[in-house]
Design a protein around this nucleic acid. Sequence first.
DNA 1: CGAGGTCTTGAAGACGATCAACAAACGTGG
DNA 2: CCACGTTTGTTGATCGTCTTCAAGACCTCG
Lengths: 261, 261
Amino acid sequence: MQERHPDIAMLRHKLSHFSETVPEDEYDALAAVFGPPVFVERGESFVVQNSRPTRCSLLLSGFAGRSVLLRGGDEQTTAIHVAGDFVDLHALLLNSLDHRIVALTPCQIATANRRSLEQLIAAYPKLSRALWFLTVVDAAVHRRWLTVLGRRSALGRCAHLVCEMHARLDDVGLVDNGRFRLPLSQARIGDMLALSAVHINRVIQDLRSSGLLTWERGTVTILDFDGLAAVGEFEPSYLQISPRPRVDAGHGRRSVLTAIA
Amino acid sequence: MQERHPDIAMLRHKLSHFSETVPEDEYDALAAVFGPPVFVERGESFVVQNSRPTRCSLLLSGFAGRSVLLRGGDEQTTAIHVAGDFVDLHALLLNSLDHRIVALTPCQIATANRRSLEQLIAAYPKLSRALWFLTVVDAAVHRRWLTVLGRRSALGRCAHLVCEMHARLDDVGLVDNGRFRLPLSQARIGDMLALSAVHINRVIQDLRSSGLLTWERGTVTILDFDGLAAVGEFEPSYLQISPRPRVDAGHGRRSVLTAIA
DNA sequence: CGAGGTCTTGAAGACGATCAACAAACGTGG
DNA sequence: CCACGTTTGTTGATCGTCTTCAAGACCTCG
């Protein structure tokens, strides 16, 4: 049953948010550069810091983090990636990567040879621009997080994270009626929000007791989205998710996806 | 004496840090899409938040900030731009901008029509990749600042900012023996570092009394670069500035540059 | 059933914010 | 060239948020 190339429906969907349309044959060419799906264990770094990247990775399922190791042992996670994210596309343009990408849950990825991608970009200018768009959206997310880390309280940061994950997971069909998996330990959330694990715990309890959400065993249910968005001052335009029909995560490989994430 | 197209030597230099070489005629084509230099007063926003961008701006001289206005009136500056920076290149791919770009000092800019740039990109794939590279470096800078804001003390943040400005200004020839102009008020520095102006003041005094730098009337002199880099845990590889001969800011238009910045 | 990771709670303390007041520098017009 | 108003820089005191340390409960998986 193992096919040669992975299902890139989620990536296609993300590319579809770009204002220009990418022709079907360019999507097909993109799918063709990826190798077969590979499983990665939780905790494993599948993109290594300071290495000269030779392959680029597409996350098919699970959660991954871009993290920078700092002296003193703590770790800042600068982004959380979800299914459909082209996690190190920017590495195509850089000679060395300033961060690693680590599987925060068991993940399924597909990788593409750097040279193949370069040839693809040279051959298909429209697809090339759409991929550029993805890296620019990534930067916009970083900018938003700069304001979140810089100016928001612990409660606001946490609420913002939950709202963003909701929006991004919903876009790829991984939200069921305000309910989605977010199987990250509170310590990991702390790495992302630049807060101690202890304080994350208190903040989550606060969100729970305010009736905004439930969060147990890695599953979040948003009870009051507007309230949560108000606490987090969440405003989703930076994600560049245009209101189109969402991808159905169940299409084709539901069993795999739900088994992993 | 007013020429039609601006001198883009600094931008060319930044593009030269890309691993692939851009042919001379593509640089010329890039210069040709820009209109004549325009002066912008301090405090003026030359790229407006939430607007649909129709022009892209190249900063020729002065300092500009990307800032996001937040409720409550305070403002997070997510990046500081210096001469030679293509400040809103990413806007070429986006439909709305989540931030504004404001002149932090009197600035000189050149703008290019969005459509002309799109045609340029379609016509010149190598140049196109080099411009993509610029947006990716921008994202890498954002990532670094996420770790700086998230994990560093006020002293470390401030030291990091000074080191980064030194490295970037040095790259475009605006540093003279550890000495450079940084004519930003302490309140503006606070917007960038997510600290109160009062605290910035105390931190700068600390840096001064530690003998690491002098900073008076908008001119910084680094006295002990290694010491400052240690305090800020500064490590410049993320800037992707390859060690090549620097641009000479005096070439051609020194009088203008020194008069402005 | 035991071990390690995760979650939870409490108490003490540090870092930076905020408020307030004043000094110094700047620039604008008389 | 000076007078004045405005912006910027400086200092002190108090307060709040989040950190750190510590310990115990829970849960999951071998």
